[in-house]
């Protein structure tokens, strides 16, 4: 036991690094986090989340929110952060946070969708796949 504790102290940094990466991998598989972020070293293992698209349907209007777009009522910096967060980590919590800011009138439902590009290399067709959708 004493030896194990000694080894843990000796390799504290790589062990901590391993735990962070393992936690990131867990979030990727269970909560929809992109492989590119969160300290799991999954860069270049899937398409970058900046290519994802966020579409909203509200009061009969369907439109895309780009990450360089400013959302009314919050700063440009916060808008960018929020949209990138929705793209990189499209879970219910982050989508709801965006819905809360975008929804001006409680009487109308808002739908937020995150779409991911997909290439079929056998025939070079390009399409989009729905990754996550919520209606609030």
């Amino acid at each position: 036991m004493a030896l194990n504790r000694k080894k843990i102290v000796k390799y504290f940094v790589p062990i901590l690094m391993f735990l962070v990466a393992a936690f990131q991998l867990f979030q990727v598989n269970n909560d929809g986090l992109t492989r590119w972020k969160g300290g799991g070293y999954g860069m270049y293992s899937e398409i970058h989340y900046s290519y994802y698209e966020v579409w909203i349907t509200y009061q009969g209007e369907i439109k895309e929110i780009k990450h360089d777009e400013k959302i009314e009522g919050i700063s440009s910096r916060r808008s960018r952060r929020l949209i990138l967060k929705v793209k990189s980590f499209p879970n219910n919590r982050n989508l709801r946070a965006l819905a809360k800011i975008l929804k001006k009138d409680e009487g109308y439902p808002i739908t937020i969708q995150v779409w991911k590009p997909k290439i079929n290399i056998d025939n070079l067709s390009y399409s989009r796949v729905l990754l996550k959708e919520i209606t609030e």
Partner: peptide
């Protein structure tokens, strides 16, 4: 507007 059933053809030899 995205639609899961729609796709386009990219240039190049597959």
């Amino acid at each position: 507007v995205p639609n899961a059933t729609e796709s386009i053809q990219l240039n190049g030899n597959p």
